[in-house]
Amino acid sequence: MSGHAVGERVEPERSALRQRLSALDTKISPYLYISPFFILFFLVGLFPLVYTFWVSMHNWNLIGGKGKFVGFDNYTHVLKQEQFWTGLRNTFSIFLLSGVTQTLAALILAALLNQNIRAKTFWRMGVLLPYVVAPVAVGVIFSKMFADQSGLINSLLGAIGIDPITWHASVLPSHIAIATMVNFRWTGYVTLIFLAAMQAIPREVYEAAMLDGASRMRQFVSITIPMLRPTIIFVIITATIGGLQIFDEPRVFDQTGQGGADRQWMTITMYIYELGWGSQKSFGRAAAVSWILFLIIILVGILNFLLTRRIASSDSRRSRKKAKA
């Protein structure tokens, strides 16, 4: 009896609970569904970032751990160092030398591979081959080729009567040598990205152009390049992020890996490594430079973004004008 009565009384309560649960469900579940991304982002993205900032505010030794709080002292210290600015110069110089040539060369290679050639797959795999080689192995081979006295490149230059170039002692030659390593490794990869995008361009556009009598060159400039724009932007942004963090190639360019006696080719990431793991073992300063590099990359990224927007908007303006006409 009483059970029944209780049961009757409970019924509405249970449904209220269910209602509350289902209300909670509609409110919370969507967040739970998307939470894995945010949890992962927090763990591997945001936390290291914030923690690095925390470290950069302290005297922090690699072995000894946290020291006293020093505020922005680490930042002012590294910004006063000549080495920091040399590193910045080298980073941008190597980035421009490798990024620009790489993108241009990849565009041309992709255009060639996009033609009707024999053994397509063979060539396409061929350009990717250098990408498979470990960067350190590339570094070892290239540093032998670029040796100042006994290197292959200087012997070849000597054979055609050019004085040997001091690849390790002078600033620009060392940057060119390192950019060559980077290009060797990445051009093929970028080529494949461009090639994939090129194949997505509808054939009809080219056929129409051909009927109008456009030359191959004209087709490339007026159809291929404009239609690759989003891909080019993607490649440039990833190249920027990667290029500003360049480490492996300059690190193995000589035997000590500190960027030369006069810091001819020491990049910012090498400077970070030297501060944190070199003789100073100062994580605080290394973290400070890491944060500065992070801000620089964001700045360059914003610059890229603004440029992209300008290109896109100028494009749409033009089409609007055409529509009016």
């Binding site: 001091t166 390790h168 002692a169 002078s170 500190q258 030369g260 006696a261 006069d262 001819q264 070199g278 003789s279 100073q280």
Partner: peptide, 23 residues
């Protein structure tokens, strides 16, 4: 504490004159 840092620096100083001839 600073031995390795100083020693690295002076070795670089010698390299600049002896090997690179930049200074």
């Amino acid at each position: 504490v600073k031995y390795s840092g100083i020693n690295d620096a002076i070795q670089k100083a010698i390299s600049r004159v002896d090997i690179d001839k930049t200074d």
